[in-house]
């Protein structure tokens, strides 16, 4: 369901002030500052905002992996499963995606979100994406 542009973050991510803050092991790290608009219970992140950050990180990781292969294919999200492990508090939150397998027709991706300590994730997600090769004119 995500048809994001390979270049730049989508409007949804920009609306929540997400930005690419780093790049580790071939995948962009996305940061999201704490603000009222990502808050659930007072002082804590909303699960949906954490999920959004995980999805943006996953999509960014696939686009980078596709570009590394010289591919200009697009992607379409099939599903996502999110595990919430810790409450996200009023700090900066980071997420990075890892492309576990990039095939010709689909990609298996995992993403994790953390705050102060990367070894203590606040949430993790598993996603499946369809790889869509660009249509060639006249074919």
């Amino acid at each position: 369901m995500n048809h994001t542009h390979p270049a730049g973050l989508p409007p949804y991510a920009l609306a929540l002030d997400m930005e690419i803050v780093d790049n580790v092991e071939g995948a962009p790290v996305i940061g999201m500052p704490f603000a009222n608009k990502v808050q659930g219970r007072p002082g804590f992140l909303h699960g949906g905002a954490i999920s959004g950050l995980l999805e943006i990180a996953a999509v960014a990781a696939i686009h980078q992996a596709l570009r590394a292969k010289g591919s200009d294919s697009g992607i379409k999200q099939v599903n996502v499963t999110i595990d919430f492990m810790r409450g996200g508090v009023g700090h900066m939150t980071y997420a990075v995606g890892e492309v576990i397998r990039l095939g010709r027709t689909m990609a298996n991706v995992e993403a994790r979100a953390w705050q102060d300590d990367r070894t203590k994730p606040i949430a993790m997600a598993t996603m499946h994406y369809l790889i869509r090769r660009p249509k060639i004119e006249g074919s």
């Binding site: 542009h5 989508p10 409007p11 949804y12 909303h46 959004g52 999805e55 999110i82």
Partner: peptide
């Protein structure tokens, strides 16, 4: 809403918006 989309060309809603909706 324009600021909730995943792709400005198609206007398709970001999937995470649906997650938040279903969470609540």
């Amino acid at each position: 809403r324009e600021d909730l989309v995943a792709d400005p060309d198609t206007g398709i809603l970001a999937s995470a918006v649906v997650i938040s909706l279903m969470d609540n």
